[in-house]
Amino acid sequence: MSFDPQSQFAYDERLGIPTPRLTKDWNEFTAREQSEILYFWETVRGAIPDRIFAFEREIVDLQSRLDEEENFDLVCEMTWDIAERASRINDLHLYFRLNQDVATKAHH
């Protein structure tokens, strides 16, 4: 039976990437399975800077629109949207660093 590393990930709509959803403790995977999971995660991790950049562009766009907006309700909504995108960027940074920690442990 072949191991599918993608089965250890679930697509996160909010972040726009698959995120780890390991079905067992890391040490319970074989060395080969760990390697395959890390390889798959490395491809996902490579897309994280692009996702961050996309959210940053959305924030810049919202901020420029916010400067022109006079409707208080819309200002509140745009401010919330900016905060939500900033939260996504923060979460993506955490996932980006996650791989560094896991990869370091796996190689030691």
Rank of each mutant, 00 (worst) to 15 (best):
S2I: 01
D4R: 01
D4I: 00
Q6R: 12
Q6K: 14
S7D: 14
Q8C: 02
F9K: 05
F9C: 01
F9H: 08
A10W: 01
Y11E: 04
E13R: 13
L15R: 04
G16A: 04
P18C: 07
T19C: 13
T19L: 13
R21M: 12
L22F: 15
K24V: 07
D25K: 15
D25S: 14
D25Q: 14
W26R: 13
N27M: 11
E28S: 10
R32W: 03
E33T: 04
E36M: 02
E36V: 00
Y39A: 15
Y39T: 15
F40L: 12
F40N: 07
T43I: 02
V44L: 10
V44Q: 13
R45N: 15
R45T: 06
G46F: 02
A47V: 05
I48Y: 07
I48L: 07
R51C: 09
R51G: 05
I52E: 15
I52M: 14
I52T: 13
A54M: 12
A54V: 05
A54S: 14
F55P: 03
F55M: 13
R57H: 13
I59F: 04
I59C: 05
Q63D: 10
S64E: 15
R65C: 05
L66C: 05
E69N: 06
E69F: 01
E70W: 10
F72L: 14
F72P: 07
L74Q: 14
V75R: 15
V75Q: 15
V75D: 04
V75G: 05
M78K: 04
M78Y: 06
T79Y: 01
T79W: 01
D81I: 00
I82K: 07
I82C: 02
E84A: 08
A86C: 01
A86I: 01
S87C: 03
S87V: 02
R88L: 01
I89S: 10
I89W: 09
N90T: 12
D91V: 03
L92R: 09
Y95T: 03
F96G: 01
R97H: 04
Q100I: 03
Q100P: 00
D101V: 11
D101L: 11
V102E: 06
T104P: 00
T104C: 06
A106V: 03
H107S: 11
